[in-house]
Every structure is written in structure tokens, then in C-alpha cells.
Simulated scan of single mutants.
Amino acid sequence: MLVRGEVVREVPPEIARFSVTVAARDKNRPAALSRLAERSEAVRALVDGYGDAIDRRETGDLWVRPELKRSGEKVTGYAGSATTIVTVTDFGILGELMLRLADQDQTTVAGPWWELRPNSPVHREARQAAVAEAITRAREYADALGAEVTALLHLSDAGLTAQQPMMMTRAAHTMGYRAAGGAPPELELDPQVQTVQATIEAGFAISPPRLASE
């Protein structure tokens, strides 16, 4: 007997990621590079100020390029940007942090992306529930035949996925806010539910069916 065990769970996210990109532009190359370094360091200092609420801070894309006239190779200036990926575990500070970063000069904030950790116990629990579901189905089928499940012949993992809402996989929310003065406004973010699905296929041996005849 071959049966499938499938379980779908909706669970709260465990981490949130967002990106911070700072840009700089100047006719003078050293000035552009210096400005880019200063703005990048300001991002690092602001993020690090949140201590244990931050899971990690990682450098993403970094680029610097000369800007040319429409024709020819004459350099008119230099532009660059640096991106930092921030992973947050304390969702209570997430909105505040993102707005404070968006309040910096020439800074773009994108996200958040809500996720589960790769080693989250939710994945293990879903797999175990899928196995239990397969055993339950096998016993129900055997009972309908007047038989009993006697042995497990094979078990295969058809996959486990953590699905995010489509709106978050297509594009990120971006912020380019700049306050007119004072502290940035408060922003409360609602964590997006994560869908975890586990599927297994199992083959069972059953005793000879006791089929009733009428």
C-alpha cells in the first residue's frame, strides 16, 4: 500500500531581513568615495546601536563607477552605492530602525522580508506530522479492507517548503523618507505568516484483507 502524508502549517516568522543602500556622487573621485564610506559607516553605527535585537549585519552589493558624457569618454563625475543586509529578531524595533535608516542622507531602505530560520524546529515538526499523517491514512485504508498495517516498506521525502506571500517575493517595499525635522514618525509593521508544507510518501505492508461478501 502506497500513501502520501502531507501537512501544511501556518506559523509566525522568526526573523526579518531588509536592505539599506547608501549612495554618493561627486565630480571629484576621492570626495565621492569618502562620502560613500562615511554614509556606510553611519549605517553600521546606527544598526549596531540596537545590540541583541540585530541577528546579523552583512555587506551586499558595492559599486563605484565614473559618469561619462553622452558621447565620448570624458568623465564628468563619480557615483557609487553600498548595500547592507540587516537581519532582525526583535520585531518591536523593526519599524523604528527602518525609518531611522531611511532618514539618513541619500539612503534607500527596502523590505522587510519575513522568514523562518533554516534550522527552525517548525520544519522538523512538520516532517514528523507528515509521517504521522501517512501512518493514519494507511491504517484507515487497511481498516476499510478489514486488514491491519504490519510493516513499513519504504519512506521517501517528497519535500519541505516554506512559502512566503507572493507580494513579498515579487518586490520589496522601499522607503526614501526624509524628515522635515525632529524624529521620524513611528511605523508599526505586521509580521507576515509563513506557510510550511511537508510531504512524504510511504509504502506499507498489510495483512490479508478480510473482505465481507454479500
Rank of each mutant, 00 (worst) to 15 (best):
V131N: 06
I15Y: 10
T89K: 15
A212C: 01
R117K: 09
I200P: 05
L153C: 07
L94Q: 06
T174I: 12
L116R: 01
I135P: 01
V20Y: 06
D143E: 11
H173A: 15
V86P: 06
G182P: 04
T174R: 11
N28L: 08
T161Q: 07
T83K: 09
A144P: 00
E41H: 13
V131W: 10
M166P: 12
E140I: 03
G72N: 09
T107R: 00
R25P: 05
S156K: 00
I54A: 10
E73T: 07
A134Y: 02
T84D: 13
A31Q: 08
D103V: 04
S156R: 11
V88F: 10
H123P: 00
T21M: 11
Q192M: 11
V20K: 01
S34R: 14
V109Y: 01
V3S: 11
A158W: 01
S156W: 03
E58Y: 00
I200R: 07
A102P: 04
R178W: 11
F91C: 06
R210L: 08
E67R: 14
T136D: 14
Y141I: 14
A147H: 07
L153D: 11
S71N: 09
S156M: 05
T108R: 04
V88H: 04
T76V: 15
L211H: 03
R56P: 00
T108K: 04
D55N: 09
A79E: 14
G5D: 05
A162S: 13
P208M: 08
R100H: 09
A198P: 03
L62T: 15
G146I: 02
L160D: 11
A79I: 13
L116C: 04
T89Y: 02
A172T: 13
H154L: 07
E96S: 09
A42Y: 00
E214R: 15
D90Y: 06
D52S: 15
A179Y: 03
V86E: 08
A32H: 09
E67D: 13
Y78K: 06
G80T: 09
W63G: 13
V7M: 04
S213G: 02
S213Y: 08
A110H: 00
S81P: 01
T83R: 14
L94M: 08
I200S: 08
T87K: 12
A179R: 12
A82Y: 10
L211I: 15
A32W: 09
G51K: 13
I200A: 15
T150I: 13
I85F: 02
L2T: 03
G181N: 10
G72L: 08
A144I: 02
A179H: 05
M98F: 03
W63D: 13
G203L: 08
R65E: 15
Q163F: 02
E201P: 05
A45C: 02
V122R: 10
V11L: 04
A129S: 11
A110V: 03
P118W: 09
S34W: 03
L211G: 00
A110P: 04
R4C: 14
V149D: 00
M168W: 12
A110G: 07
V11C: 07
E214Y: 07
Y50V: 01
R137P: 00
V196P: 03
K27G: 15
D52N: 06
T174K: 11
V64L: 10
A162N: 13
V20G: 05
A212I: 08
A179K: 05
G5W: 00
R44K: 12
W63R: 14
F91Y: 06
E186R: 14
K74L: 15
Q164Y: 03
R139C: 01
L62H: 11
V3K: 08
V149K: 09
R70V: 14
D103T: 04
T161C: 00
